[in-house]
């Protein structure tokens, strides 16, 4: 079932009015996963909470499976949510945690047992059903939270930065598992994160949020290759896109331009677009991030470690015309 937000606005009034969601319109197609990504304070979690019904919306409409749930209670929206801190019920066992929503809905006991067994098997928790959440690791707690969400077979999953409390290795593993689980269940999912790697690897579509406004919605490839504006271009990609001041590359005086660090190659001095001197070489696994000083600015270049220059080297920098992104005076993409 699809999930649609139309013109959703929300203002908080603590310490004066603050607009946190500004006419947000989004649609997650049936069975797809949309990742909402944005910096801290961009309104991602508030957006998710508005969909869950944990925050009211000031204006706009929230639909789950074509049903208007804007005014519905959280329990009547047919959505399940995984919280950032998992929000497990600490006094209940894993089994009781998973079954809690079914008990609340007065599902017959036999059905509860079957559904709990199915959900716990899906996340690999069969052996820990009688354990207390307090005795589980972060990764296991995360699985309990996931099982609790999927046991109800809701129309949509809402996941609020579910990996943020896990260590790097577990995060990668769990990311893969959530994605594969979502694909096999084909449940419409809205996933919030501030981590662009999660956004780019998990989402069928990605929505970039800034200051309560949707900056761009598209597939990860579209967002990366054709960012709608300078913010999206700089926000997605690590290290961020290099930006050149207007007029520097011979284009219109009001047009800024940018190029991704991995699209720049090193050439002989004088034969590329710029000449510069290597300031710093940062090794990131098998790759290096090379900081090249060109006049007043610094360009970042991402290359394989084997083709990396050394600090102090004089280098030429080159990139193809098709790798150049250009933006107008309002920072919107023009090419």
């Amino acid at each position: 079932m699809s999930l649609r937000l139309t013109g959703v606005s929300k203002t908080f009034h603590t310490n004066g009015p603050k607009l946190v969601l500004d006419e947000v319109t989004l649609e997650v197609e049936d069975g797809h996963m949309m990742v909402i990504v944005g910096p801290s304070g961009s309104g991602k979690t508030t957006l998710l909470r508005c969909v869950a019904g944990l925050e009211s919306v000031d204006r706009g409409r929230v639909e789950v499976g074509g049903r208007d749930v804007t005014q519905a209670d959280p329990g009547d929206r047919d959505v399940a949510m995984v919280f950032q801190d998992y929000a497990l019920y600490p006094h209940l066992s894993v089994r009781e945690n998973i079954a809690f929503g079914l008990r609340a809905r007065k599902v017959p006991r036999a059905d509860i047992d079957a559904q709990v067994a199915e959900a716990s098997a899906a996340v690999g928790l069969e052996g820990s059903l009688d354990a207390s959440p307090n005795h589980l690791s972060g990764g296991e707690r995360q699985r309990v939270a996931l099982a609790r969400a999927l046991v109800r077979r809701p129309a949509a999953f809402l996941l609020d930065e579910p990996l943020s409390n896990l260590d790097a290795e577990l995060r990668t593993q769990t990311r893969r598992e959530i994605r594969s689980l979502q694909r096999s269940l084909k449940t419409t999912t809205l996933y919030v994160t501030h981590d662009q790697v999660e956004a780019m690897t998990m989402g069928d579509t990605v929505a970039v949020l800034r200051a309560g406004k949707v900056e761009q919605v598209g597939t990860p490839e579209e967002l990366y290759e054709e960012p709608a504006n300078v913010f999206v271009a700089r926000f997605l990609g690590s290290p961020p896109m290099n930006l050149f001041p207007p007029g520097l590359l011979g284009s219109a005086a009001s047009t800024a331009a940018g190029v991704r660090p991995e699209r720049i190659s090193f050439v002989e001095q004088g034969s590329g677009r710029f000449d510069g001197t290597v300031d710093l070489v940062e090794r990131v696994g098998g790759e290096v991030i090379v900081h090249v000083r060109c006049g007043d600015g610094v360009l970042l270049v991402r290359r394989d470690v084997r083709s990396a220059p050394s600090p102090g080297d004089a280098v030429g920098l080159h990139f193809a015309d098709e790798d150049l992104h250009t933006f107008d005076a309002e920072d919107r993409r023009v090419g």
Binding site: F100, R103, A104
Partner: peptide
């Protein structure tokens, strides 16, 4: 934690259920 109550609300727990299954045992 507030999030425990929010999880219960999303789980469909009504106030009496929340009181008897969540608040009371947690305060017991």
């Amino acid at each position: 934690p507030k999030s425990v109550y929010e999880a219960a609300a999303v789980d469909g727990a009504r106030p009496l259920f929340t009181f008897t299954r969540l608040t009371l045992p947690l305060m017991a």
